[in-house]
Simulated assay, not measured.
Amino acid sequence: MICSIKQSTVTPTINGSDTTSRRKNMSAIQRYLVLPSLNANKSKPVLSVSKPLHVSRVESFALSKPQKRTLITCKAYEADRSEPIEVSGVKPEAAKKVKIGIYFATWWALNVVFNIYNKKVLNAFPYPWLTSTLSLACGSLMMMISWAIRIAEAPSTDFEFWKTLFPVAVAHTIGHVAATVSMSKVAVSFTHIIKSGEPAFSVLVSRFLLGETFPPSVYMSLVPIIGGCALAAVTELNFNMIGFMGAMISNLAFVFRNIFSKRGMKGKSVSGMNYYACLSILSLFILTPFAIAVEGPQMWAAGWQTALSQIGPNFIWWLAAQSVFYHLYNQVSYMSLDEISP
């Protein structure tokens, strides 16, 4: 068998008289050069070369030149081992943390604005039951308009959903009214100092009623919270028992609301925004008859005339602002649950 390698104008010939080193090199080349042909009379294939083969470029067989690695690699993963896609070098976990931080900052800013306007309204119009009712009514109206004009997609609910939502709405109504009553009797700062003890209520309720246990560090962290609330209550110059008890009741009610909300949202296809919208609507139906019974239209009419005569048209703006911002800051807090919840 004769095999020739042709490169440029010189064609070297490799035959049986070559040296042993050339035979070894030739054996590597022959793996790529042999052409198979089948003998019809025999069952086993026979490999043969009928003509000399010429190779113009040895590099084409990648024997002397390694291939270059591509910069783009494609990998396939199983469904349960898939890796998250990173967009523009930003990890999904980092983006999620930033999004949650934005939610918390927005919630805090909207809450501050609500507290300012709510206190202005209560100073001029000291009827916390009606003020609380108007806040829920404004939020419910905003969401129903959003659903009607399709700014937001209306939730798909059933009787079981509203049944699960009912205890959440009861706790939300009690907490909302109690906090508003507290702010109508004392300074906003005092109310929020007392309400800052809500983590202590959450731990105690979870421990004694739900049977959940926490590490000792969690219980130790409650000591400065409880001590700060007690110190603020003792040193408050305009201390009012109704205001103090309203803040304490609000803490307890919101703890149960949060517990019921987390349980109610599990397995539900309703988003956080629509969940709070449904919560506002149901709370409005619960609160309205109690507001009428406690205060009544006659007291509201007299207080309305007094507020308009003292403040003027700005009072209407204050009332609308506190109602809108109340709904917005609560809505943002429930939207953040979509990101926090697993």
Rank of each mutant, 00 (worst) to 15 (best):
92 P>E: 09
117 Y>T: 09
197 G>P: 04
157 T>Q: 08
164 T>K: 15
130 L>C: 00
202 S>P: 08
111 N>A: 15
129 W>S: 06
186 V>M: 13
173 T>A: 13
187 A>P: 09
204 L>R: 02
206 S>D: 07
192 H>E: 13
194 I>V: 12
182 S>W: 15
156 S>Q: 13
194 I>A: 10
191 T>A: 15
181 V>M: 14
192 H>D: 09
175 G>I: 14
107 W>T: 13
212 E>M: 02
208 F>Q: 03
134 L>I: 11
170 V>M: 12
97 K>S: 05
130 L>T: 02
139 G>V: 02
176 H>Y: 08
116 I>K: 12
107 W>R: 08
168 V>M: 04
144 M>G: 00
120 K>S: 11
113 V>K: 04
136 L>A: 06
115 N>D: 14
147 W>H: 02
127 Y>D: 09
149 I>C: 04
193 I>Y: 12
148 A>D: 00
162 W>S: 01
127 Y>T: 08
213 T>D: 11
183 M>C: 13
207 R>C: 11
150 R>N: 07
161 F>G: 05
217 S>M: 01
116 I>C: 10
110 L>I: 11
134 L>V: 11
108 W>I: 10
156 S>A: 11
108 W>V: 10
191 T>Y: 15
150 R>K: 09
122 L>P: 05
98 V>F: 02
209 L>T: 07
229 C>A: 12
224 P>V: 01
131 T>P: 01
149 I>K: 03
174 I>R: 11
96 K>E: 02
112 V>H: 15
173 T>Y: 12
229 C>T: 08
194 I>N: 04
209 L>W: 09
211 G>T: 06
181 V>P: 14
189 S>C: 15
205 V>K: 01
103 Y>S: 15
188 V>F: 12
177 V>I: 15
120 K>L: 12
148 A>Q: 02
177 V>R: 13
195 K>P: 06
161 F>I: 07
229 C>F: 04
138 C>W: 07
204 L>P: 03
219 Y>N: 03
172 H>V: 10
146 S>E: 01
162 W>H: 07
137 A>F: 09
120 K>I: 08
200 A>I: 02
131 T>M: 07
107 W>N: 13
154 A>C: 10
112 V>C: 15
213 T>C: 12
132 S>Q: 05
